[in-house]
């Protein structure tokens, strides 16, 4: 779980960096004009969707995973202590 937590934290950092540093350029591809343009075959909204997916992941998916890992580690400490005592 600690490994999962570390990976999730790194992914969270990567998503936040992507969203906050490059979203202006990336979202421009999917946004307003380009969304309709993409639907009409004038532009690919792929890059924009990637940023939207990163935003979704950084807010809705990764924080619960990180929190779950922390909870798991904290909750396991008494068991590990008991095992160590035995």
């Amino acid at each position: 779980m600690i490994k999962v937590g570390i990976v999730a934290t790194l992914a969270e950092v990567a998503c936040v960096v992507l969203v906050h540093s490059s979203h202006r350029a990336a979202v421009a591809v999917v946004s307003g004009q380009a969304v309709a343009g993409g639907l009409a075959g004038n532009a690919s909204p792929l890059l924009g969707w990637l940023v939207v997916a990163a935003q979704m992941a950084s807010v809705l998916v990764l924080p619960p995973v990180i929190l779950g890992c922390i909870l798991h580690v904290v909750a396991n400490r008494p068991f590990q202590r008991r095992r160590a005592v035995r």
Partner: peptide
């Protein structure tokens, strides 16, 4: 048991986090 505890922790964290996420926006 460890896997079940891990799964339980994830469910608990998701239930605690999701209703609060909107507070950041």
């Amino acid at each position: 048991k460890a896997i079940l505890r891990g799964f339980g922790a994830l469910v608990l964290a998701t239930c605690a986090w999701i209703p609060c996420a909107h507070l950041f926006f």
